[in-house]
Design a protein around this nucleic acid. Structure first.
Length: 154
DNA sequence: GCCAACGTTGGC
DNA sequence: GCCAACGTTGGC
């Protein structure tokens, strides 16, 4: 079982959108970065857990925990001409982009802010990828020790 | 394969 | 809105 951190802009899709979705489950679509695509396609397993991170918003930080409920499968929004995620280079017979399904496991009573995380940048959260300068991946692996520590910050 | 131009991410 | 730090594109 692996741990992850998945970023989303709440103005596009936030934790409350997931809470309101049928079965509190949704495909994590719209990833258009090859490194992240490879993780979704090859590295995610059913039962993995991920922090749901809100980015590009007033208070960036971790809003809750989701459970991975599928392996990677093709991102059908890339095939949809009218969808914002449309990519003509991705074909159903040779899909370029992938998703996994996520189910909301827990919305935190409060957001664990980026500022709080940064307070441990030189200590317990050293080498947490989200804190690394220049990191732009929307999905990053989280090691077990970091996961445990952050979950304890709630 | 190089690299300039361009686009995107995301904190501030 | 600004801008650093990327990733991608395309001419050569």
């Amino acid at each position: 079982m692996k741990y992850w951190l998945m970023k989303s802009e709440p103005s596009v899709f936030g934790i409350d959108d997931l809470a309101a979705a049928p079965k509190r489950t949704s495909a994590w679509d719209g990833v258009r970065n090859y490194q992240v695509r490879n993780m979704l396609r090859d590295d995610f397993a059913i039962g993995d857990l991920a922090f749901f991170y809100h980015s590009s918003c007033e208070v960036p930080g971790i809003a809750g925990i989701v459970e991975i409920t599928s392996r990677g499968y093709p991102d059908v929004t890339a095939f949809d001409l009218k969808h914002a995620n449309y990519d003509p280079a991705s074909k159903p017979e040779n899909p370029r982009w992938y998703v996994v399904d996520v189910r909301l496991q827990k919305k935190f009573p409060r957001v664990i802010t980026l500022e709080e995380l940064r307070a441990h940048e030189q200590g317990k959260l050293r080498d947490l990828l989200i804190l690394r300068r220049g990191n732009r991946l929307s999905i990053t692996p989280v090691d077990a020790a970091h996961w445990k520590f952050i979950a304890g910050m709630v």
